[in-house]
């Protein structure tokens, strides 16, 4: 796939990747009450890496991602599963939402919660899953 990347695409993807990643984190965090959430945010992040993959090649994309996509998938699955466990310790059923709002000076209230952990898990699962498949297809091509 190396021949596909034009100069414009390569330059653009360098700028777009960080923007898309930032946007994906924004989507992830606003997702509880407004449109967004882990799934769509994970897809946005994966789009950024996929764009980079089209512009460059699979090897460089792998280097750029800080971990193997399969590990991301595993960590995400683990986070999403374990997000259901804390309620058990206080005698509630699995996946009962628990909230720990904290005041951060200058930023306002931040709501830490088990749904947030779950959403981060979904984010990682989607990012890892999509990148595993896309990288596998790209490497088969090369």
């Amino acid at each position: 796939m190396t021949t596909m990347g034009s100069l414009i695409l390569r330059t653009a993807s360098r700028f777009l990747l960080p923007l898309l990643l930032l946007f994906s984190v924004f989507m992830l965090l606003r997702g509880h009450d407004e449109p967004g959430g882990g799934f769509i945010a994970g897809l946005v992040a994966a789009t950024g890496f996929a764009l980079y993959l089209f512009a460059f090649d699979a090897g460089r994309t792998r280097e750029l991602m800080w971990a193997d996509p399969r590990v991301l998938f595993g960590l995400g699955l683990l986070a999403a599963t374990l997000a259901g466990v804390p309620p058990i310790l206080v005698g509630e059923p699995f996946f009962t939402a628990m909230w720990w709002p904290i005041e951060v000076p200058g930023l306002g209230e931040i709501k830490l919660s088990t749904p947030l952990v779950f959403d981060i898990g979904v984010y990682l699962v989607v990012l890892g899953g999509v990148m595993t498949i896309v990288l596998a297809l790209a490497e088969a091509e090369e």
């Binding site: 799934f39 899953g129 999509v130 498949i133 596998a136 297809l137 088969a140």
Partner: peptide
């Protein structure tokens, strides 16, 4: 839709491998 997305991604990889 989400499940369908995952399954179809697999199906695409599968037919590619099968074709190879």
């Amino acid at each position: 839709i989400v499940i369908g997305f995952g399954v179809l991604a697999f199906a695409v990889v599968l037919i590619r491998r099968a074709y190879e």
